[in-house]
């Protein structure tokens, strides 16, 4: 008796994995509960024991995907000499992960169309807000180390970065030739000018980026007067 119960509980990840594949292949509309049950090797009834509706199952899949993406990025920060390099590395890691997990990429794009649902709205907002909070502290460190202009608003920059993550995910999902370098290099191409434009303005308006690419910025040893 107890055994039956525990095996039932263990079916949840199995169902979510099967549903992830099905939703990615056929979209939300096209994937039926029967498809998912078949792929998981169980009955539709068994799925409904764990998830009251297809929508609930989709939410579980989406949470799984977002958690995986976030965990990939924040498991440990890559060593970097300054914020510019760190931001570049994080973007590249994100793109690499999306490329290696095309099913997950599909789910991310699919979820946007569900953003109208209130609970999703709140869910994604809190997810992104957490991420923006983390990025914000990195931005603040970047300002402290002198890589970013202190007149910039860290909270705002953090949101800009979160949304560029989204944008890159979208572009990747379209599988188009965007006239960009393939793969993670695309992240660097898009980020380089933006990050350079956030550098402290060296002695007023000069031409070109304030920080020459490839060279570490000089650390400010004393606060500017």
């Amino acid at each position: 008796m107890a055994e039956v119960k525990s095996s039932r509980r263990n079916r949840r990840p199995l169902i979510v994995a099967a549903a992830l594949k099905a939703f990615a292949a056929k979209n939300y509309d096209g994937a039926s509960m029967a498809d998912i049950a078949r792929a998981a090797g169980i009955t539709k009834r068994a799925i409904y024991r764990h998830f009251p509706s297809k929508r609930e199952l989709f939410y579980a899949v989406r949470n799984e995907v977002y958690t995986a993406i976030v965990e990939n990025l924040w498991r440990e920060l890559p060593p970097a000499r300054d914020f510019t390099e760190l931001a570049d590395l994080l973007m590249r890691a994100h793109l690499r992960f999306c490329e290696e997990n095309p099913d997950m990429l599909r789910i991310v794009v699919n979820t946007v169309s569900e953003a109208a649902a209130r609970e999703f709205q709140e869910n994604i907002e809190s997810l992104l807000a957490d991420r923006a909070g983390d990025i914000r502290s990195l931005v603040e460190a970047g300002i402290k180390e002198g890589t970013l202009d202190p007149s910039l608003d860290p909270a705002y920059l953090a949101w800009v970065l979160v949304l560029i993550f989204f944008f890159l995910t979208y572009m990747l999902a379209f599988e188009e030739d965007w006239l960009l370098p393939r793969g993670e290099e695309a992240a660097s191409v898009i980020m380089r000018p933006i990050l350079a434009s956030w550098a402290p303005k060296a002695g007023g308006g000069t031409t070109g980026p304030a920080v020459p690419p490839g060279k570490p910025p000089t650390r400010r040893s004393s606060p500017p007067r």
């Binding site: 800009v160 949304l163 560029i164 989204f166 944008f167 890159l168 965007w178 006239l179 960009l180 695309a186 191409v189 898009i190 980020m191 380089r192 000018p193 933006i194």
Partner: peptide
Amino acid sequence: MEFAWSFVALMEI
């Protein structure tokens, strides 16, 4: 061409 993508990203967000 590369710069254009940065600008588009900033518009798109």
